[in-house]
Design a protein around this nucleic acid. Structure first.
Lengths: 215, 215
DNA sequence: ATCCTTGTTATACAAACGAATAATTTTTCG
DNA sequence: CGAAAAATTATTCGTTTGTATAACAAGGAT
C-alpha cells in the first residue's frame, strides 16, 4: 500500500537523449504532433516527464532535435541503398530514386512525422534552418549522382545545369514520395517507382538501366 | 463599471460558417495547427468561442471542413489560371503547372495550412478521405489536360498511359510546389517554373510553347 | 406592440498541458 | 566504506484547452 518509488537506472546521456528523441518521433508518428506531449513522450521512453527537461531546455528543443535527426535518417536510408547498388552511375541514381519511394523512407509513419515538422517551418526560424540544411544535403546527393552520370556519358553540362536538374529530380522524388506515403493503396506495386524512373530518364534523355528490372 | 454584454448581429448560417472556416485557416497559416484554438479562431472571426459549437459539432469538424475547402480552393486557383490561358492544350497545361508554382497557390501560408492538415491524414480516416478526393480531383484535371494534348498532337497513348503520366506530372508539381513554398529564397524568379516546364516537356517529349516566355 | 424562436454571449468546469521545484536514489570517487 | 555529485522520480503550480450549460438579445411573426 505504500507508495513505492519507481526503480530506475542511470543511462548515459547519449542513450537517454536518443531514447527521448525516438520516443518523440514514435508519438508523432502514431498520433500526430498534438499527441506528442511531454507525458506521452516520457511514457514511451520509459521515464518520468521531468527527465525531459533535464536533457532538453524545453519541449521545443526536443522537437527540433527530433526533426533534424529524422531528416538526416531519411537521407541516410536512401544513401544506404546507394551503397548496396551495383552498376554504373545511372543505375546508382535509379537505386537512389527507387529507395525513396519504398519503405521505410516512403511510409505513412515517415509522412506523419515529416508533415508535423514541416508545418512548423513557416512559423519557427529554427525549423526553417533545419529544413534548409536537410534539403540542400539531399539535393546535393542528387547533384553528385548527376555529375557521375554526366562524366560516364561524356556529357559536359552548362553552368548550373546540374543544380537545376537536381532541383527538378528532387521535386519528382518528393512528389512521388508524397503520393506513395499518403495513399499507397491508390497505386500498384512498383507503379510509382516506374513513374520516377520514367520521369528521370526523360529529363536526362537517357535510360537508367538496360531493361525495366528493379523498377 | 457594469459588465456590458457584447453587441452582435445575426448573420446567415452560410456567412458564419464561411467566416469561421476562414478564421481557422488564418490561424493555422500564422501560427500552425496548435495555435488554432477555439478561442483564437473565435477571436479572428469576431465572435465568442461558444458560437463555434453552434455551427459545428466540435472543433474537429471545423478543421475537417477547413481542410476540404482549402484543398478545393487551391485546385480552383490553378483552374482559374486555366480559364485565362490562351493557346492550345500544351500552353494550357503549361499555364496550369506554372500557376501552381506561384502565389497564392505556392506560398508559405498555403504550405503551413496544407502541412498541418496532411499531418492528420495518417491518424484520422476523415482526413484521409478528404485528401484522396482532393488528390484525385487535382490529378484528374491534369489527366484531362493531357488528353487534350494527345488529341491535338494526334498521339494515341496506350491504356492507362494518361493516368501514369498524370501521376508523374502531379508529383513534379507537388515537389516543385513544396520547394517554392518552403524556401522561396533559394530559387531565382521563374527558376522553378522553368524546371517544371522542362520536366513536363521531357516527359511528354514535346515543347509546351514556342519560346521560353511566361516560364 | 408583444411574443417566440434561436442566434449569440457569458460563465463555468474538468482535463491536460508545459514547466518548476523538491525529494530521493543511483553512481562515482576518494 | 562513506560522502559528494548527479541522474531520476515525485509533486505541485498556473495556464490553456475543448466542451457544456445558462443567460441574454436580436429579428421575425402575429
Amino acid at each position: 500500500m505504500s507508495a513505492e518509488r519507481k526503480a530506475f537506472r542511470r543511462e548515459g546521456e547519449d542513450r537517454r537523449r536518443a531514447d527521448l528523441v525516438a520516443a518523440t518521433v514514435d508519438a508523432i508518428a502514431v498520433g500526430g504532433v498534438e499527441s506528442a506531449t511531454v507525458r506521452e513522450i516520457a511514457l514511451r521512453a520509459g521515464v518520468t516527464p521531468g527527465l525531459i527537461r533535464h536533457y532538453f531546455p524545453g519541449k521545443d528543443d526536443l522537437l527540433r532535435t527530433a526533426y533534424a535527426e529524422t531528416m538526416a535518417e531519411m537521407t541516410e536510408a536512401a544513401r544506404a541503398a546507394l551503397a548496396g547498388a551495383v552498376g554504373d552511375s545511372r543505375q546508382r541514381l535509379l537505386a537512389f530514386v527507387v529507395a525513396n519511394l519504398a519503405p521505410p523512407v516512403a511510409s505513412g509513419r515517415a509522412l506523419s512525422v515529416w508533415a508535423g515538422f514541416i508545418a512548423k517551418v513557416h512559423a519557427d526560424a529554427a525549423f526553417a534552418r533545419i529544413h534548409r540544411e536537410a534539403y540542400l544535403d539531399f539535393r546535393g546527393e542528387i547533384e553528385s549522382l548527376l555529375l557521375g552520370v554526366f562524366a560516364e556519358s561524356g556529357r559536359m553540362p552548362g553552368e548550373g545545369a546540374a543544380v537545376r536538374l537536381a532541383t527538378a529530380i528532387n521535386a519528382v522524388i518528393d512528389g512521388l514520395w508524397l503520393e506513395a506515403s499518403l495513399a499507397p493503396d491508390l497505386f500498384a506495386a512498383g507503379e510509382l517507382a516506374a513513374a520516377g524512373r520514367m520521369a528521370v530518364e526523360a529529363m536526362l534523355s537517357c535510360a537508367l538501366a538496360g531493361s525495366p528490372e528493379q523498377a
